[in-house]
């Protein structure tokens, strides 16, 4: 269960230049404050997701989709409003976030695992299974800088989804990688779905939203335009055509 009540995320964008002590001093002397523009990336949003439900989030660029997922992943604390959820969240916001490209794939499994909050011992125990699922093979002991973006995504996905999370959030990350990885990752997500994980997925593909999701949430300018059965909302948002 995820409950979002009146969540606002407000970025403060300095009107003029990057703030420096010097600027502040000059402005203070001139008795002028630094001016900011407030910008609500999310504006008083409320909705809830039932446990075991899969919900797709659609909307144009800059609508606030990533911001919403970041709130749920606790990267951003809402400026106002309340977030409640239950269970472990597996964030697939950027696959391989926190990878150190100079280090080997194996070392990065430990690093990425630690970033996700797992203990070293825990990762060591599950290492073989993770490497196996990633399909990286012998490259696991090569530096990650030698990997293709698809390989980075595979490894990141394998670490983040090795244990079924109660909540899975996916931000447009599954488009990378080859057909085999796409199938494999989709299969794993379906498996999670079948075992009761709650899933939020941002995608620009109407077809995959329709195929995967129970409901869809249409965001625009930080507000909810529509929320309801996936087919209906997707058709309303993108009647007949795939949207970029």
């Amino acid at each position: 269960m995820i409950q979002i009540d009146n969540v606002t995320v407000r970025f403060r964008i300095p009107h003029e230049r990057i703030p420096t002590f010097q600027e502040y001093a000059i402005r203070w002397l001139k008795r002028r404050g630094v001016r900011y523009a407030d910008f609500n990336a999310l504006n008083d949003i409320s909705f809830s997701v039932e446990q075991g439900e899969t919900i797709g989030i659609i909307g144009p660029n800059g609508a606030g989709k990533s911001t919403l997922l970041k709130v749920i992943a606790r990267v951003l604390r809402p400026t106002r409003g309340r977030l409640r959820l239950r269970g472990r969240v597996a964030p697939l916001l950027e696959l391989g976030a926190g990878f150190d490209y100079e280090m080997t794939g194996r070392e990065n499994v430990f690093l990425n695992g630690a970033v996700l909050g797992f203990s070293r011992k825990d990762i060591a125990r599950r290492l073989d299974r993770i490497v196996d699922f990633s399909g990286i093979g012998d490259f696991i002991d090569a530096p990650v800088r030698t990997y293709s973006s698809g390989m980075v995504a595979r490894l990141g996905f394998a670490v983040a989804t090795d244990i079924r999370p109660e909540v899975l959030i996916i931000d447009e990350v599954l488009a990378v990688g080859d057909a085999e990885f796409q199938q494999k990752s989709a299969a794993r997500i379906r498996e999670f779905r079948g075992s009761g994980s709650t899933i939020l997925v941002v995608s620009h593909s109407p077809a995959s939203i329709k195929a995967l999701c129970d409901r869809a949430l249409w965001l625009e300018h930080g507000a909810i335009r529509a929320i309801g059965p996936a087919d209906a909302v997707v058709d309303q948002y993108a009647p007949g055509k795939p949207v970029r």
């Binding site: 599950r126 699922f133 090795d162 794993r188």
Partner: peptide
């Protein structure tokens, strides 16, 4: 390649 089954949550 054969998929290993995903571990169920041990918690």
């Amino acid at each position: 390649m054969i998929d290993r089954t995903v571990a169920t949550n041990p918690r």
